[in-house]
Simulated assay, not measured.
Amino acid sequence: MNMDTVRQRGLVLLGCGKMGSAMLAGWLRGGLPPASVWVLDPNPSGWLKTQGVHLNAPLPEDPAIVLIAVKPQMMGAALPQLAALGGGGTLFLTVAAGTTIATYEAVLGVATPIVRAMPNTPAAIAKGITAITGNDHATEAHMALAEALLSAVGQVVRIEGEHQMDAVTAVSGSGPAYVFHLIETLAAAGAAEGLPPALAMQLAKATVAGAGALAEAAEDDPAQLRINVTSPGGTTAAALKVLMDEGRGFPALLREAVHAAAERGRELGR
């Protein structure tokens, strides 16, 4: 099963909000014909209506793949309408948070190949990272197809199994919010030191974005990059003495935050 199969048999996208739209835009840019795409969405955007895809139309009988991108709270109403496609011929790929593979198998049948994925919001600008894992019926070809589709919005990694998904969610799924909060608080701290708020925000955004890009591009690991910018007894060292404090700094704070997110994910998945 490959992208040629998708072109021939079709792709069904259930839900076309921000994540669904980002993926669809990436596929269309990559050459997937709009005529090969069926979208089911109760409130289609103006952009979606202009893309030439089959919108809320009768589905193909044997699509290559169904991609589920609805919000978890809409899953109960949305999934049963696809139950007829379960059973083995169609790959189901889900990017919905919190819904377990077992839940899909209960509706679609245990013989259905299912790949569960956790993307994150930088997918909107093709800078996302998505972790994937499959059930027992997801073959290497299914996993490769899932990777090919999800790579339209960024990097894709495979995890050992679904037991790691809550940790992934806590690091990369929820992680952009932690970084946005860092930008907020860094800008506020700059304003508290006398900078105009707009200038402090510009500095904070560019600094976090630039440091992230450097961390990805550099051969050195982030610890070495930190050391490189820290002169002994200098300004950065004074700040890091606070931030790296084991009791009240980033090490303890982020461990606690990521653990809280992972625990909440486990609760939601029960």
Rank of each mutant, 00 (worst) to 15 (best):
V6T: 02
V6I: 05
R7Y: 10
S21R: 00
L24W: 02
A25Q: 14
R29E: 15
G30S: 14
G31P: 02
L40A: 05
P42C: 11
N43G: 10
N43F: 05
N43I: 08
G46E: 10
H54D: 06
A57H: 13
E61A: 15
E61P: 08
L67Q: 07
I68G: 07
A69G: 12
A69K: 04
M74F: 12
P80T: 10
P80K: 05
P80M: 09
L82S: 01
A84F: 00
G88S: 11
L91H: 10
F92P: 03
L93P: 07
L93S: 07
G98H: 01
A102M: 09
E105C: 09
A111P: 00
T121K: 04
P122V: 09
A126Y: 04
I129C: 05
T130H: 00
A138W: 02
E140K: 15
A141R: 13
H142S: 13
L150N: 09
G154F: 02
V156F: 01
E160M: 08
H163Q: 12
T169L: 08
V171H: 03
G175V: 06
P176L: 05
Y178L: 02
V179D: 11
L182F: 09
T185D: 03
T185E: 03
A187P: 11
A187G: 06
A187L: 03
A191G: 15
A192P: 01
A192R: 02
Q202S: 15
G210W: 00
A217H: 03
E219Q: 15
D220S: 09
D221G: 15
D221N: 14
L225W: 02
A238N: 06
A238F: 01
L240C: 12
K241Q: 14
D245Q: 04
G247E: 11
F250C: 07
L253H: 05
G265R: 02
G265Y: 00
